[in-house]
Design a protein around this nucleic acid. Structure first.
Lengths: 202, 202
DNA sequence: CTGCGCTGTTACCTCCGGTAACATGGCGGC
DNA sequence: GCCGCCATGTTACCGGAGGTAACAGCGCAG
């Protein structure tokens, strides 16, 4: 198979277009960037999902490896969690367009379920699940809790990271603290505020 | 404006199609269901986003009201949180197709940001933010934390609810407990497991 | 009766993902 | 040397999507 380098070239072209135009770039545009025409793309990747899948797979590998490594750092649990959060946020911060590609669910999901988590994120969720299962003693509820929490934490960081990237309300370190605090139950530990008597003005 | 009832009729038709075919139903299909042709739809709603927007707005109102009410129930904090979670999960359980419509981000977002949270969910996030701000004393970090947590919790419940709907790993009540436990810091409170000595096979 | 606003139609445009059919060029086997 | 093979590339097309232009009937105020 001498087609390997060719595949890489095509993926590089696709990557350039996606960086420039975001996900949803058309096959024509990608073919043009590669200096060829559509049928060649289809020969190499089957259909659009194949191309996007191959493209995301390349980027996913790096992110996934970084997250996995962070999950296995020999740190205190809180520090480990903060480290994972920081790694994720740093990744999406450094290459937003790649991040969009990875997190954006496939536009047209005709038959299947409208999965909230894109494939790359599902892999991250599984990684978190595995880490929880291996590292934390949750008793007999372990399997269910770890699976649930893996997805939950992924969705939480996805939504929070997305908002953070858009609005940049604070530095990254502070965001890490806010998320870790949430996971550490600060929501439950904080004091009540007195009930409001009337709507306060300005 | 006698067009109000007509609008409702068209939205009802659109709703039927979306229930049957999921989001992504074509304008032709909706027009056919309404017994008319496309240009009328475009006259009433401008473009596809207008139609889908009007459709989601109707459904969002109910969900949002339910969540808002749950957020203001006079209960202990933990019970209130569980109540909110239960209300949300019950809603998506009872009408999955509506849920898909509300949570599925617009397929083609060419220029703008690939928001992880659809409009309906963003409203829910704001509702949670407001509730946290009004009910819980978080000191000077309050504004940032409540905003972050509003999005985070929404994303968490989105991802978890999505997975739960697909795989149904446990009854609803148990899911509520799992999520509330996560928010209550059980992840931080649980004991460590001894580190694994070797990679286990199979 | 005339004009206006709303209803509706047919026919068309552009762009997309995807495919069929055909042309070219290097390269190993005989 | 020649042949067949395989990957390369092309043009031209299909069906269906969102969206629009232009035209036709209907009911009702003046």
């Amino acid at each position: 198979m001498t087609s390997e380098p060719r595949r890489e070239q095509l993926l590089n072209a696709a990557d350039r277009v996606v960086q420039r135009e975001g996900p949803g770039a058309s096959m024509n545009a990608i073919a043009a960037e590669a200096g060829i025409t559509k049928p060649i793309l289809y020969r190499h990747f089957g259909d659009r999902n194949g191309l996007i899948g191959a493209l995301t797979a390349r980027h996913t590998a790096g992110l996934l490896a970084a997250v996995r490594a962070a999950l296995n750092e020999p740190l205190e649990r809180r520090d480990r969690v903060e480290h994972v959060l920081d790694v994720y946020l740093a990744a999406i911060e450094s290459r937003p367009q790649v991040y969009r590609l990875l997190t954006h669910p496939e536009p047209g999901d005709p038959t299947g379920a409208g999965n909230a988590l894109a494939p790359a994120l599902r892999q991250i969720a599984e990684e978190i699940t595995r880490a929880i299962q291996q590292q934390i003693d949750l008793g007999q509820d372990g399997p269910l809790l770890s699976e649930t929490w893996g997805r939950s934490i992924t969705g939480m960081v996805l939504a929070a990271g997305d908002w953070w990237l858009e609005t940049r309300p604070c530095p990254r370190a502070r965001m890490v603290q806010a998320l870790a605090d949430l996971l550490w139950g600060r929501l439950s530990a904080a004091a009540d505020l007195p009930p409001m008597l009337a709507a306060p003005e300005a």
